[in-house]
Amino acid sequence: MARYATTPSQTVGPYLHIGLPWPDGPFAVAEGTPEGVWIRGVLYDGAGAPVPDGLIETWQADPEGRFDHPDDPRGAVARPGFRAFGRCPTDANGEYGIFTLKPGPVPGPGGTLQAPHIDVSVFARGMLHRTVTRVYFPEEAAANAADPVLSSVPEPERATLVARPAEDGYRFDIRLQGEDETVFFDV
């Protein structure tokens, strides 16, 4: 059981751009990878205005549903050219883009299978703590319906977690507040 109190979160503030972006940050898989897809979107505030001082981070399984990590009981699987982690600041129009591989399904609790998904952290000026959401894929209707996390979200809000198809991948807009507010998770 955790015995030491954790260090509290603070905002990334307005000047996150000097410290956090990496030149290769948006490339969760190496640039030019043929199977790569772009996940692009806009981060919006509660007034529907784009958020130009935010940062999006993604973490996900590989196309076989595996992680390069020792805490995966199935064992760590490395995939050359695939970092599985993406990081992109939002630009002046609130837009971000992550180039990655579509993940495979991942085991869930009690023998269930989670639909392909990507975990997303949202940081911004005006946010004292990150918020967490998940991207699901529109062509995975059956898997999405059986996903233990997605199916726990009430139907009308579920759509905020499903990306839309786009020419070079997917579109996933994130709305921090408002009528179509994205579903966020307590992780």
Binding site: V132, R134, Q177
Partner: peptide
Amino acid sequence: LRHPKRGLRLL
């Protein structure tokens, strides 16, 4: 304008 109002769902 930058906080969710619906409350967070347990992940």
